[in-house]
């Protein structure tokens, strides 16, 4: 369950949005520049919002009115960035095990993710030798290795060619059913949202324009 109220000013956008959702996979859907990534950054603690209150499963992550601002490192989020952001000097194996305490996790978690994301042949490789799709699969695995309370996916398929896009989407769908991690997906592609989300929030110019279940989202022809 996530409750979010955010007011923040970017150079060319005023964000003023408020929603709550218990969906396992919530999609923030809207055009580029609508403020969707800023919302993810606020959840992850990567920006200092002007005014915000974000509560995840009853725990306050940030509440500017009460001067609560949990450090990003303590929020236990798994963030998959649009550009992957793998650590270029580390092997895929080391990237996967980077998360705090990841090494202490059961080996089965590592093996399970490697298996689900088909990463075994990539483990000894460096990020610059990977294709775009492979990079995103590693980034997803790295975020999940920390067993996060919430997975944040920022346009995870953008920039991938058609085949890689289908592959990664398929992996995400499999993970959704296998791991049951609460997820917030940012996307401007309706097919991604339909494939993964349980509920959709339409974002336009920094504001919420609609909160829809999947039936309504699809019936609207978005």
């Amino acid at each position: 369950m996530i409750e979010l109220a955010l007011q923040h000013t970017l150079a060319d956008l005023d964000i003023d949005i408020r929603f709550s959702s218990a969906a396992r996979c919530l999609a923030l859907f809207g055009d580029s520049g609508a403020g969707k990534t800023t919302i993810l950054n606020a959840i992850a603690g990567l920006l200092r919002p002007r005014q915000a209150r974000i509560v995840l499963d009853g725990q306050v992550l940030v509440d500017t009115a009460s001067s609560i601002d949990m450090p990003s490192a303590a929020r236990e989020v798994g963030y998959v960035f649009q550009d992957g952001r793998l650590f270029p000097h580390l092997s895929v194996h080391a990237n996967l095990l980077y998360a705090n305490h990841a090494r202490q996790r059961k080996a089965t978690q590592f093996e399970r993710l490697v298996d689900l994301l088909e990463l075994a042949p990539l483990l000894q490789r460096r990020p610059h030798t990977l294709s775009g799709g492979e990079r995103q699969r590693v980034a997803i695995g790295r975020a999940l290795m920390s067993e996060p309370r919430i997975l944040l996916l920022d346009e995870p398929l953008t920039g991938l060619h058609r085949e890689a896009r289908v592959q990664v989407l398929d992996h995400l769908r499999r993970l959704k059913h296998a791991l049951r991690v609460a997820t917030v997906l940012v996307s401007h592609q309706a097919d991604e949202v339909i494939a993964l989300a349980d509920e959709v929030i339409r974002v336009h110019a920094g504001t919420l324009t609609a909160q829809l279940d999947m039936a309504k989202f699809q019936s609207r022809g978005d």
């Binding site: 990003s72 490192a73 929020r75 798994g78 650590f87 705090n100 990841a102 975020a143």
Partner: peptide, 13 residues
């Protein structure tokens, strides 16, 4: 700096 942000979300001090 974005790599540091990524590390931060992974719990790194």
């Amino acid at each position: 700096r974005r790599l540091e942000h990524a590390a931060e979300t992974l719990g790194a001090s």
